[in-house]
Amino acid sequence: MGFHEVRFPANLSFGSIGGPERLTDVVTLANGFEERNTPWQHSRRRYDAGIAMRGLDDIETLIAFFEARRGQIHGFRWKDWADYKSGAALIEPSYDDQVIAIGDDVTPTFQLTKTYRSGVHDYARPVTKPVRGSVRIGLGGDEQQEAVHYTVDYTTGIVTFLHPPNAGDAVTAGFEFDVPVRFDTDRIMVSVASFQAGDAPNVPVVEIRV
């Protein structure tokens, strides 16, 4: 089992359906009240690319990609067109989109994260597959230069500073990112409707932890 640092063709993931899911245990007590708990700290995303298949060329590309991943064996990158930027969907990422940490004079490495807010509550999602060349980092309100002030591991989303940030300085980031996924099936069922068109009605993909 491994992970291939290759993205599922973005033109085929465009138009797919999917999004985050969580696992919640709900117990109804005798008095009618509920107790709710979850074993998951982070949500998990599921997608179905089948709806986006449009022609025989798409089907051929899908089958080749599926075979190269050995079905469910190897993970790969997936572009979630509904959520692939650190900031607003229609704006290019900026170095101050997300506060990912506060400096302490000691720690030089930080995980990229994206925080989702609603009212006074929020959820910080680890970003482990940033898109190469898209990451911008700020420190104390000033943009830093990659390879001069910091490096990025694009396979893990870890940012490493040459020198640990000063205590109290906000470490900020902007980026595009992919979702680490695998196929959630060991077979692809296709239908050829004509010499020019075909479809794969069910191509399930599920997020994995890496």
Rank of each mutant, 00 (worst) to 15 (best):
D199Y: 09
G140P: 12
I100W: 05
Y150N: 06
I100A: 02
E67Q: 13
P164G: 12
T156Y: 11
L139S: 05
H149S: 14
M1T: 15
Q144P: 00
G55R: 04
G198E: 09
T28M: 05
N31V: 09
A193I: 12
G157K: 09
D122Y: 14
S134T: 15
G138F: 07
P108N: 15
Y154P: 12
T156K: 13
K85Y: 06
D105I: 03
F65S: 05
A64G: 07
A30M: 10
L12R: 08
Y123F: 14
I63P: 03
V148M: 10
E207H: 09
E34K: 11
A170I: 08
V210A: 10
L139W: 06
G55I: 00
D25R: 07
H74V: 01
A68S: 09
F14R: 10
R54V: 08
V27C: 01
R132N: 07
I17Q: 06
G133Y: 01
D186W: 15
S94A: 15
V205H: 05
A173S: 09
A167K: 11
Q145A: 15
V106R: 08
N11H: 13
A88I: 12
E146C: 12
T113E: 04
T107C: 01
V203H: 04
L12I: 11
T38R: 01
E146F: 05
T115Y: 04
T113M: 09
R45I: 03
T172P: 07
G198Q: 08
A89S: 15
V99D: 02
F76Q: 04
P108Y: 04
L112S: 03
L62V: 13
T185C: 11
L162K: 11
T155M: 12
R54L: 08
F8T: 02
L162H: 06
Y150Q: 05
A82F: 13
W78G: 01
Q111V: 03
V27M: 06
V127A: 02
N37Q: 08
N11C: 00
G71Q: 04
V159S: 01
F175S: 06
G50L: 02
H163S: 13
